[in-house]
C-alpha cells in the first residue's frame, strides 16, 4: 500500500517537472549529438627523441552524447551533459635514443631504441563537460569550459622496427632489427583512467532543431599513469570533436 503511494507521488512529481520544463523552454535546452573525434595523443612539445613523424592517421572515432543547457539570461548559460566517445590515432615516427620496452608475458626488456616506432592509441571514454555558453547571435553559440573523461577501455600498443636497440641503456648491447623483425609493445594496462582538460567550441544552428558543432578538447594530464616511466615524456590527448546536434 505504501509503495503504491510512493509511485503515485513520483509520477506526480515527474509530470509536474516535465510540465514546468515545457513552460520554461526558453531556460532549458536539450540536445542529442553525434560526431567524430580527430586528433592525437601527443607529447608537448615534441620530445627531442622524435626526429620525424612519418605518418599520422586518425582512426574512425565516433561520439554520441546528450547536452543540457541552462540559459541564465539572454546571452549566458551553462552546459553539461554526457558523451560516449572514442578517441584514437595511429602514428609512425622515426626516433633516436627513445626509451622503450618490449613486453612478453609480463617479462620486460628495456632499452633505448633508434629507428621506427609505430603507435596505436585508442580509447573509449565517458565524458562529462561543464561549459559556459555565450549566445553570440541567433545562430551561433560559443562555449568554453572543462571536461572530465573516464576511460572505459583503451589500447596503447605498437611495435618498433628498422633500427637498433641498445639493451638496458645507450651503452648496452646493440641488436639490429630490420623491417621484418618487430619488437612489439603493449602499454594498454598503463593508461590513465581519469583525464581532464579544457574544452572550447561553437554551435551553428542550421535549422530550428539541427545544429553543427565543433569543439576542441585539450587534455591536461598524461594519457599514461604517473607510475608509468617507460616513456619518458607525457602524452596529452588533444582531439577535435565535430558533428551534428538535434535540439529536442
Amino acid at each position: 500500500m505504501m509503495n503504491r503511494y510512493i509511485i503515485i507521488l513520483l509520477l506526480a512529481t515527474t509530470m509536474t517537472s516535465v510540465y514546468a520544463q515545457k513552460k520554461q523552454q526558453a531556460k532549458w535546452e536539450y540536445d542529442i549529438k553525434i560526431g567524430l573525434n580527430i586528433g592525437g595523443n601527443s607529447p608537448l612539445p615534441l620530445p627531442v627523441e622524435i626526429r620525424e613523424i612519418k605518418s599520422y592517421s586518425p582512426t574512425f572515432a565516433p561520439s554520441i552524447g546528450a547536452d543540457i543547457t541552462h540559459h541564465l539570461n539572454k546571452r549566458w548559460g551553462i552546459t553539461s551533459g554526457i558523451k560516449l566517445e572514442k578517441k584514437g590515432m595511429s602514428t609512425k615516427a622515426r626516433v633516436k635514443n627513445y626509451r622503450t620496452e618490449i613486453v612478453e608475458n609480463g617479462n620486460k626488456l628495456k632499452g633505448n631504441w633508434t629507428g621506427n616506432v609505430k603507435t596505436k592509441a585508442t580509447g573509449y571514454h565517458l565524458t562529462l563537460p561543464l561549459l559556459c555558453t555565450y549566445r553570440a547571435s541567433e545562430k551561433i553559440n560559443i562555449k568554453a569550459g572543462v571536461f572530465l573523461s573516464y576511460l572505459l577501455d583503451g589500447e596503447m600498443s605498437g611495435y618498433v622496427n628498422n633500427g637498433y636497440l641498445r639493451k638496458d641503456d645507450p651503452t648496452g648491447d646493440k641488436v639490429v632489427f630490420d623491417s621484418k623483425t618487430k619488437g612489439t609493445y603493449d602499454f594498454s594496462d598503463e593508461m590513465r583512467k581519469l583525464n581532464w582538460g579544457l574544452q572550447a567550441g561553437a554551435d551553428y544552428r542550421i535549422t530550428k532543431s539541427l545544429k553543427l558543432f565543433a569543439d576542441l578538447a585539450w587534455g591536461l594530464n598524461d594519457t599514461m599513469k604517473d607510475s608509468f616511466k617507460t616513456i619518458t615524456f607525457s602524452m596529452y590527448p588533444i582531439y577535435f570533436n565535430f558533428g551534428i546536434g538535434y535540439n529536442l
Binding site: 615534441l46 627531442v48 627523441e49 626526429r51 633516436k96 635514443n97 651503452t171
Partner: peptide, 13 residues
C-alpha cells in the same frame, strides 16, 4: 614546426 633540434648522441662506442 615542432621537431626539435637533435639531442647530442648518448652512445659511447
Amino acid at each position: 614546426a615542432c621537431i626539435r633540434e637533435e639531442a647530442p648522441n648518448a652512445e659511447a662506442d
